[in-house]
Every structure is written in structure tokens, then in C-alpha cells.
Amino acid sequence: MSMISRIFGFCLRYPLVGISTLILLALLFVSLFAPFLWTVDPLQISPATRLRPPSLEHWFGTDALGRDIYSRVVYGTRTSLFIGFVVTLVSYAFGIAIGFLSAFNRFADTVLMRIIDGVMSIPSVLLAISLTALAEPGIWIVILAISIIEIPRVTRLVRGMSLALRDALFIEAAYASGTSTWRTLFRHILPNISAPMFVQASQICAQAMLIEATLSFIGAGVPPSNPTWGNIIAEGRSLYQIAPYMILFAAMALAITVLAMNLLADGLRDALDPKLNRGG
């Protein structure tokens, strides 16, 4: 009971975090229970009912192959969220490791930072296109490509903040108390840089979903048979003047998700500010 009231109180104090978390939870629900949400098989082609506008039978209408757009958008939620979360996890795992390494080892720093600078100097979508072109198209190669784009951003953040903390007196105090380097990293440094990392994580998640849509849109992403928001928009591209509903709903879903992620980032920035009262 008290847990629920505390969460409720938190959401009242930081409405942005509350609203965006609700939206994201709803999206998660949609993607987990996609088969039970009055959907039909998103891949099933039905030439008889092509290009039908939204109706009771096909809520969001049907596309050029007669596939139910509602079902495709709902199933597309799965792919988009999955890619967003996995990319965030992967880029953080590597970003934190590389960031720590270069913050605490001068030689590694010189080498790693030049590599990172190199990666950052290539336009991100170009880099992803060339990577996906090298391999069989598929969801994992898309995840890999987007992660490679995002890792440098995490690394920069982790490295910068760790460098600032490295000379903090409480880190020196930890060494003086005989704390090992590993323990110092995970007990003192990581918690103290977590607030900006959470903020950036939600931005990265949103960014990953956008890049995925972009890649799918230009045909370099997830194979077109898979329903993703990017693929849906790409397919509706040529017909959007006569059937705007083909793009509209997928685009709205994408926009709402990215907006929710960005709102979460903004809200977290306030909620995790150490200068404001914490813990209660």
C-alpha cells in the first residue's frame, strides 16, 4: 500500500515522469500481448480487401496487399521497443566499460578516444547502411549497427563524468580506506554518474527507434516482411496521397513513443537532481 502511495506521490511531484512512464508501460503491454489485442496475422495477404480505409472491421484500414494495418502497427510495437531496449543495453554495457577504461588508463584513453572520434565523424545513418549492406538483412544486424553508432555517445559521457569524479576527495578517501579499484568504480563512481546516464539512456532508446525506422524506410533495415513502423511507413510511401491512413498510424505510434521517451528524459533530469530533496 505504502509503496503504491509513494509511487503515486512521486508521479504527482514529477508529472512528466509519471505520464511518460504510463505511456511506455502501455506500449510495453501492447507489445507483450499483441496476439490478444483483437489482432489478426499481420502478414496475411488478402488481395480482395486492398486499400480499405479505416472501418469497424479494419480499424486502421488495410494496405496495398490487403494486410490489416492495425495488426501491423501493434506487432510493429514489439520490434521497435525491442530494438530500442536492446540497443540501449548493448551501448551502455560497452559504453561504460570503454568509458571507465579510458578514464583510468591514460594509454588506453589515447587509443580509444581516437577510435571513438573516428566513429563519430561518420554520419550515423550512412554507417548503419554500410553495415547492414555487409550482412544478411535481419533484426540483429540492425541492432548491431545502431549500437555502434550509440556506443561513442555513452563512452563520451561516462568518460567525462568519471574524469571529473576521479579527483574528487571522496574517491581519494575510498582509496585511503583500502577500497579496491573495482569496488570504487561500482560503488562510488557509477552511482554518482547514474542520473545523467538514465537521462541519456531514454534519449538513446528514442534515437534507436528513430534510426531503425529510418533504415527500414530506405530499405536498409529489418526485412520488409516484418512489420515495423519504419517498414509500414516505407510501404505506404507511394500511396500516401490516396491512402494517408497507411502512414498516419505508424507515424503517430512512432512519434508518441519517441515523445514519451524524451519526456521521460526531461522528467528524470529534474527527478534525479541530487540538489533536490531525495529519499524523503
Binding site: F170, E172, A173, H188, P191, N192
Partner: peptide
């Protein structure tokens, strides 16, 4: 061998 630091504000981890 131990040490007591000057600044009691920055010598304690704010998260602990």
C-alpha cells in the same frame, strides 16, 4: 595509516 580530509563536503560520497 589513515587520513582526515579538509573538506567535509566533498570527502563523503553523497550517495551513501
Amino acid at each position: 595509516m589513515q587520513i582526515i580530509f579538509q573538506d567535509p563536503f566533498s570527502s563523503l560520497d553523497p550517495r551513501l
